[in-house]
Design a protein around this nucleic acid. Sequence first.
DNA 1: TTTATAATTGCAAATCATTTGCAATTATAT
DNA 2: ATATAATTGCAAATGATTTGCAATTATAAA
Lengths: 123, 123
Amino acid sequence: MTNQELKLKQAGFKITTPRQLILEVLKKYKTPLSAKQIYQYLPQIDLVSIYRNLKLLTNLKIIFQEIINNETFYYLDKKIHHHIVCQRCGRTECLPCNHKYKIKNFTNISHQLILSGLCNHCH
Amino acid sequence: MTNQELKLKQAGFKITTPRQLILEVLKKYKTPLSAKQIYQYLPQIDLVSIYRNLKLLTNLKIIFQEIINNETFYYLDKKIHHHIVCQRCGRTECLPCNHKYKIKNFTNISHQLILSGLCNHCH
DNA sequence: TTTATAATTGCAAATCATTTGCAATTATAT
DNA sequence: ATATAATTGCAAATGATTTGCAATTATAAA
Ligand SMILES: [Mn+2]
Ligand SMILES: [Mn+2]
Ligand SMILES: [Zn+2]
Ligand SMILES: [Zn+2]
């Protein structure tokens, strides 16, 4: 039983084939993937189930998400980090996060940083 | 002729009533607004025209945009800055930006930082 | 100050990501 | 093995945004 499967079980959710396959895809491709991209790798699973499971896994903090251009991307990575996206070809690269924000009048602060530019293939 | 109208004219676009009204609303309310929110203030203008004009004004860098929770918000502000959004009530507050990013393999880098938390009304 | 023309608008319908309802299927605890 | 609640798949709804097209309008030339 993988680490992620254990978290699922401990939270009282079933370990199902769709869930295992989605996690395998995220593990294999490393880069952040959208629901639709995951669906292309797993056409046997209903897109709706992919959406539902991505939401569940995100709630359980088994995976993480980032919204880029009105589309949500998911990635499996214990350590929080950021991404830079090429505005022409969509290539993404990961970047470390060492930010800490403290803001008056707000608590429970989380942050999302999206960098965008031209990769050297496209430049 | 306002500064924004001048930019429109110089770029070869017409100064129309919808465009003037949209800019007035953004000027009046200061906080970032979505197309739908602007439409609520300007029900006489077709929502589609609001979308088209927001896109045009953004391309011309007369206004700026930020995507929060899969919805695009627009604001009229010369100086780039960021926003913190209350995850419960949606209240937003502006924050200064003094970030500069330099990343290997990428040029033309721009960034978007979205902070989210609980405002002290909701906490 | 008309007039011509291209840009812009409004309305309907399309599109795209995501969600919801519901009956059929399946993982797990007994 | 069986019961049962969780999960799935399919269809249809939703919400944001875009597109096509005919009617309207801002602008600049006559
Ligand atoms: Mn960070
Ligand atoms: Mn910044
Ligand atoms: Zn690129
Ligand atoms: Zn709040």
